[in-house]
Design a protein around this nucleic acid. Structure first.
Lengths: 353, 353
DNA sequence: AAGGCTCCTGAAAGCGCTTTCAGTGGCCTT
DNA sequence: AAGGCCACTGAAAGCGCTTTCAGGAGCCTT
């Protein structure tokens, strides 16, 4: 068996999954009393068909419950009406929202979407993902370049196919939609500083490579104020690691303000602080990022920066669709997330330091 | 233009999306010095090929970076290695997790997955979704029967294609994977009752039709104790509606215990109660459902019932794959979610009632 | 009346594969 | 030595569509 393909059915498929025989274009043609190309023409609108025949075809289509086969169409025309979403994850907040946005606009434009996930940046996995995308004859792909697997997968595609990236860090030369995170991160950090905190600690979520915009913004803001950057705390996507870090940071009296990579992490950190008997924001201020739907419900409600991932997905898809039509890529529109101030930040406590 | 099809490209596609010309099977055959069928045979493993030729073919495949076209394969073989996920939503917790589970097992089995969402139960939308699934020549479909659109879409498929449903309520005769929610809901309600609460109010999330297992379980538990069911409060998926209801319920001194349809709703309700100056669980006990990742981080941490939606998705996919192989559907395994007791429930307050 | 258009139509080819089907050669049996 | 089998292979057909391409019909022009 070749390496590039292996049947999902283990045996020579005695029990494979034969597609139900449904009406084909020639059934329609026969019933309507026209030729196959004529049916094709009313289907695709590629050429004019007389009113009379068109009506007969439409009737036959309805009568047979005919649906053109996407596979046959792509094969014959060399054009596809399917796009792929390439992502490292499908269920985490930002990812799921971005996917929702992509799906929505794809559907609105008449495109089907296949989703392929690449869990790690391991070479074979990345290649498998790229293969999967390429094998499916999709018109284009939107890749969630939020993390190393995403970055690797995009690279593996080698522009063998129209692709646009969804990202948090602007980058030149690549078709992409970006939510500029660094400015908002900087603003959030400044907010904490302006409250009187002498420094801001950072709990970093898994980055997309070198450094993501959130961390960069934080670093920049501290730099602007000539404040040395405290050591970064890293969390995994598992919120319990954030909890542990919250406990640990609470034990350090130098910590009065914390900037977390996202809201879930902020909640974990706050809960950790809470479990040591300290209070947020009285003892320690904490900010998150994203404005997760639960951020306003948390007690204390989170100060954070709103990210519209679904909109990012829609932008990216629009970008891709434009690219497919041969239009010049839309202007690189970087949206700066608005800050939302709630309850998790306050003046530094006199009890600490 | 026909109703069943409309090109996503508005014009006669001068600027359409031509697929990049890549190596085809005959390129491989030529380079390897064998016939096309031979290449096909090494690809699919459908018949034996001499060691010598197989090696030459593999080499040619690698040299050309050849990838078989899924569209051509499905067309020629009448068999598909793609499954569809049909869902009303892709980003809400339970949905996203279920989708993740489906995608994981599909990928493990070598299947690609396309995702089609049906937002409402409106007839045209449901039909469009069913059409989309059917047009794609997928081997089968997993439908998230969590809500009315899901139910309607499943019906619209009319078993024109192998399908399994993911659901919270067991139902006979349909291939499905179910997470039996009613027992856990009843147990949660009993828990509240056993704490001494004289009744339990229910905040219901959008149901899947008649009544979902969560509401049923709650109703059953009250019935068992001969307690009349208080009026149900309905929330939308928007957490702010839960917040409003929390505020409202807090103003009713008869309310000392609340069973919420899911954890997000519970958090909204708790926050609403909190905003009226009351405390959970001292004044009012609240339970959620799902054991959302943030449930243990919330303050107070939520008492809830754990739902493994990803596992549900995996089960459903296994079910579908078995069905495709012609095997008898796996035993209907209904998993009863384990309860997890945390901080949001307590004895009834003497200050109320 | 002849030529030239414009419209509309069907025949035929072909997209990239898989799947009969008919060999071909080698190796065993009798 | 003849017959049978088996393992392997390529020619050809065909999956359900789209896309030339070559007409035929009708209508204007000259």
């Amino acid at each position: 068996m070749s390496q590039t393909t292996s049947s999902p059915y283990d045996e020579p498929m005695p029990h494979s999954a034969p597609l139900d025989r449904t009406a084909t274009i020639s059934d329609v043609a026969r019933l309507a009393g026209v030729s196959v190309p004529t049916v094709s023409r009313v289907l695709t609108g590629a050429a004019r068909v007389s009113e009379d025949r068109r009506r007969r075809v439409d009737k036959a289509i309805a009568a047979l419950g005919y649906r053109p086969s996407a596979a046959a169409q792509v094969l014959a025309s060399g054009r596809s009406t399917t796009i792929a979403i390439l992502a490292a994850n499908t269920s985490r907040y930002g990812y799921a929202e971005a996917i929702r946005g992509v799906e929505e606009s794809a559907r609105a434009a008449g495109f089907a979407v296949i989703i392929v996930v690449v869990e790690s940046e391991r070479d074979d996995e990345v290649r498998a993902a790229a293969d999967a995308v390429l094998r499916q004859s999709v018109a284009g792909v939107v890749v969630l370049k939020f993390d190393p697997p995403g970055v690797a997968a995009l690279k593996a595609l080698q522009s063998a196919i129209p692709a646009v990236a969804l990202s948090g860090v602007p980058e030149a030369g690549v078709p992409q939609a970006v939510l500029d995170e660094s400015e908002a991160a900087a603003a959030l950090t400044e907010h904490l500083l302006s409250l009187g905190h002498s420094t801001v600690h950072h709990v970093r979520i898994p980055p997309s490579g070198k450094e993501d915009g959130r961390t960069t913004g934080w670093r920049l803001a501290l730099q602007r104020h000539g404040i040395p950057t405290p050591p970064i705390e890293d969390v995994s996507w598992d919120v319990s690691t954030a909890h542990e870090i919250g406990v640990r940071l609470a034990s350090d009296p130098a910590v009065t303000a914390i900037f977390c990579g996202n809201d879930e992490t902020a909640m974990g950190v706050i809960r950790g602080i809470h479990d040591t008997g300290l209070n947020v924001p009285d003892d320690i201020s904490v900010v998150g990022f994203d404005d997760h739907p639960l951020a306003p419900m948390f007690i204390p409600a989170l100060t954070t920066a709103r990210q519209d991932f679904a909109e990012l997905g829609r932008h990216g898809t629009a970008q891709l669709l434009a690219l497919l039509k041969g239009e010049s890529p839309l202007a690189l529109e970087t949206v700066e997330p608005p800050l939302v101030f709630r309850e998790s930040t306050a003046l530094p406590s006199s009890r600490r330091r």
